[in-house]
Design a protein around this nucleic acid. Structure first.
Lengths: 343, 343
DNA sequence: ATGAAAGCGCTAACAC
DNA sequence: GTGTTAGCGCTTTCAT
């Protein structure tokens, strides 16, 4: 790398001190317009760009926030990242993205990196683990926000969908249509979304005077290995005439399940009503389009980002309290696409 | 932010100088095992993590590479990013991602940022513009690789799919089945992929003794506004019995087009044979699954990353030549999913 | 094998 | 309003 142009070069050319040059470029109000112009001119002549590494070291602010998410294939994650990026860009912040594949140890590594790189903030939309590392980060004065999936014991503000409500809405939509035999495809109890989703399903059935039947429920991990199991499970129930509708609250399994129904001639909604929790293009453009519960990833991202910003503002003002709000649950919305009907 | 633990604290606790502490942690071979152990011990006791901003400033290496891509919704882009990330992770590099929405000015801004942040490398899979900024970066000694879409006049190694071949394969697949009236949905001439794709289509027709008919060709921008136009175009041709097969070489339009065919009862492949350039889950899981030309985004990413690495190695060795290879074209592969048949 | 000292490029404190 | 000085936390000479 050839000798780079530094602020010193600019200062010399503009015949000012480096501090004046720095002030002119960072918009210090007390600099004389004429000297500022000279500096700007020198910058242009030399094609100077500030070394942000040096600037960050001194000013203790990198202008970079980090985000750790499981992957970018899942539409909810991707949308969260997209809108964090949009907000960041609006606030002149850069985003360092790390995908973890849901592996807590990779997320833990990211949390160390965040500390090493002195990131201005960290958003976690991830594994739901690593409470100790998160708390350490918070203790050290870093701004942290958890979103999409809560982390038990973590002392950072958390912005998540109201999963219970999402499955309640989905199930109520079906009971309102007159369904009595509603299967549930969900996640495991170890995840908050897993048990909240199931709770919402159960509660909606209760309100409709129906019982939860173990026979109609299958729950597995949030990865695609679970898809084929869930698919065969539903197919069997259908063949035995035990089910008229299904709530898919495990997005990772949704795809395989829909494909399986298609290949076995089980028509939606003629033979089976289907509703998915978490929207995605695959569901939207399925044939037929699938009714979904939108968990509002965009709003999630924006809320999380704003929480991060307010933490930053507070800490810049020497305010000790990280944030006033510790938990926000976002209201999901039903998008009716006609993949359900009377049983 | 409370007072952070620095290398100095570690050194004091380990009763060595900061230089020794630094050497112990960076794996300098001449440090005595016993002193190294003391340093490691102090690190653990203090829960020390190095400040990489400071380290980067001094060592002139950030361990971060940047990548600019249009968006993450397009499967090819997403896969490129995914595999750049995997390679980076294997080489202990972080990835700063900026999405540009195909806007050259946003990409230009990213190129400035890359310079400001002293990034260890830059991968562009993007707009196909900004040759001057790219060349400036190269001149300044930065490692740059262009992938997915070439940039005319840019002096950085370029790794792209062989677009001409991809459309030739697609079209030959159809002529071999006996199709004589093959429509072409493509990109504009201003993009290399746009004219190369068309050239491949034309060449394949020629080889089969067929003429290119203007009537069967529509080309538009790589964004979703073009989709509906292309869709109606094909529908009209079909209704006039002027077409038996279509090559979709504009991925942004593919989706709308397929949906339009579906909604107008034009069945694939019974009524119309369809083949798409660029694979994606949407095409793979369409009903029926669509035969595709895989442009090998994974291989693209890996090749681009390796090129970046070799540039870095060269420049660390004070080697002037940026790279020996200036252009690599990757061979596409046909994935037959049965969405084509005899006319 | 280790320490002392210099300095990466910038911004903040303190002068005036 | 501007210059002088110091120093962010680390790595790298240059000593020994």
């Amino acid at each position: 790398m050839r000798k780079p142009v530094t602020l010193r070069d600019v200062a010399i050319l503009a015949k000012v001190s480096t501090s004046t040059a720095s002030r002119a470029l960072t918009g210090d109000p007390r600099i004389l317009p004429s000297t500022k112009a000279r500096v700007i001119d020198a910058v242009a002549k030399l094609n100077y760009l500030p070394n942000r590494i040096a600037s960050s070291l001194r000013s203790k602010s990198t202008g970079i926030i980090g985000i750790a998410i499981n992957n970018l294939d899942n539409y909810t994650f991707r949308t969260i990242f997209e809108h964090v990026g949009i907000q960041a860009s609006k606030n002149s912040l850069l985003v360092l993205l790390v995908t973890t594949d849901g592996d807590p140890s990779r997320e833990a590594q990211f949390l160390d990196t965040a500390r090493e790189l002195q990131l201005d903030g960290v958003i976690l939309a991830g594994t739901g683990k690593n409470a100790e590392k998160i708390n350490l980060l918070v203790e050290k004065g870093f701004s942290v926000v958890i979103t999409n999936r809560s982390v038990p014991q973590a002392s950072a503000p958390t912005i998540i969908p109201d999963y219970e409500l999402s499955c309640r809405l989905a199930t109520e939509h079906l009971t309102a249509l007159g369904h009595k035999n509603i299967a549930f495809i969900g996640g495991l109890n170890e995840y908050q979304s897993g048990w909240e989703n199931f709770a919402g399903y159960s509660r909606a059935l209760e309100s409709a005077g129906l019982n939860v039947s173990e026979e109609l429920v299958i729950r597995g991990d949030y990865n695609r290995n679970f898809g084929p199991l869930a698919a065969k499970f539903v197919e069997k129930l259908y063949n035995k005439n035990k089910v008229t509708a299904v709530v898919i609250a495990n997005h990772e399994a949704a795809h395989e399940l829909l494909l399986h129904l298609l290949n076995h001639g089980i028509e939606i909604p003629e033979n089976l009503s289907v509703i998915c929790v978490e929207d995605s293009p695959l569901i939207e453009f399925w044939n037929p389009a699938i009714t979904a519960i939108d968990v509002q990833p965009k709003f999630l991202a924006e809320t999380a980002f704003n929480s991060l910003l307010s933490q930053r503002t507070n800490s810049l003002n020497g305010n000790a309290t990280a944030s006033e709000v510790s938990l926000v649950k976002i209201r999901p919305k039903l998008i009716n696409r006609g993949s359900t009907r009377n049983p």
